[in-house]
């Protein structure tokens, strides 16, 4: 008789095998073992052509991240932190190297495949909130759920907005919210799909120190509740210190 863990393991393999052939249609189950490698990069590099030849923004980055890890990426401006984050999140494509997320080769996917992966596995928090200005707080949080055809979108969005303390602000548009409130909406939107990985790019960069501290508190609380893998880009050493691991980039290379 198979143990429940083995049964789940088998189920995951079956689904993944099917997903290999039809990534657009099959729901990738975010069920992953605790000690499983969730992100692995090999010889990752990004360069862009300029008038003076190729400019290497990132080179030879080898990185392994396990489920449940919290990782801070630090470095000076222009060191390649945001580029590394965007490549790992599938927002951009590398010039060389490979990225595996949950065992899947990200570089082998097309834009739609990556979009589906982001929808199922990944949450984002940006420095400048990036909320859709025409939508209310509620609609903004519902958006990733609706993209995944979740029938419970309204219910889940409302619950999470309550959790981040915005029960009274559901029908407000971003313009009617303060910076701190907008970032709370962004947090709710990031966690509402219960993603396996959360990418946060300078999440307090646009906030005053007090509001920033509140947001960080909330971020780590939600992270603990949802057992999310957190990858954080920051200048703030104190914030980096709250993560389990810190890596530092300099001129596009890990040091």
């Amino acid at each position: 008789m198979l143990s429940p863990k083995t049964t789940i393991d088998l189920a995951v393999r079956v689904v993944e095998n099917i997903a290999k052939y039809n990534v657009n249609k099959i729901f990738i189950m975010p069920i992953i073992e605790t000690d499983q490698v969730i992100i692995e990069t090999r010889n990752l590099g990004k360069s862009v052509p300029t008038a003076n030849g190729l400019l290497h923004i990132l080179s030879s980055v080898d990185l392994t991240i396990h489920r449940g890890d919290s990782l801070a990426i630090v470095g000076a401006s222009g060191s390649g932190k945001s580029t590394l984050l965007s490549l790992m999140a599938g927002l951009d494509t590398p010039s060389v190297g490979s990225i595996q997320i949950n065992g899947k080769e990200l570089t082998a996917m097309n834009e739609d495949g990556r979009a589906l992966l982001r929808n199922q596995l990944i949450g984002f928090v940006f420095q400048s909130f990036q909320l859709l200005p025409g939508l209310t707080a509620m609609e903004n949080v519902m958006l990733p759920l609706e993209l995944a055809n979740d029938k419970q979108a309204e219910h889940k969005a409302e619950r999470l907005l309550n959790r981040v303390g915005l029960a009274e602000r559901l029908q407000h548009t971003p313009r009617q919210l303060s910076g701190g409130e907008q970032q709370r909406v962004a947090l709710a939107r990031a966690f509402v799909t219960e993603p396996a990985i959360l990418f946060a790019d300078e999440p307090t960069g646009n906030l005053d120190s007090r509001t920033g501290a509140q947001i960080i508190e909330l971020l780590f609380q939600l992270n603990a509740e949802k057992q999310t893998t957190l990858i954080l880009v920051t200048h703030d050493n104190e914030l980096a210190g709250r993560c389990q691991r810190t890596i530092k980039l300099d001129a596009g290379k890990l040091i």
């Binding site: 979009a115 982001r118 929808n119 984002f124 990733p144 993209l147």
Partner: peptide, 19 residues
């Protein structure tokens, strides 16, 4: 500009090109 921005954001959250 607005459309490009919103398109990028929706794609970040998982919307496909076709959608």
């Amino acid at each position: 500009d607005q459309r490009i921005y919103e398109g990028a954001l929706k794609r970040t959250l998982g919307a496909g090109k076709r959608l």
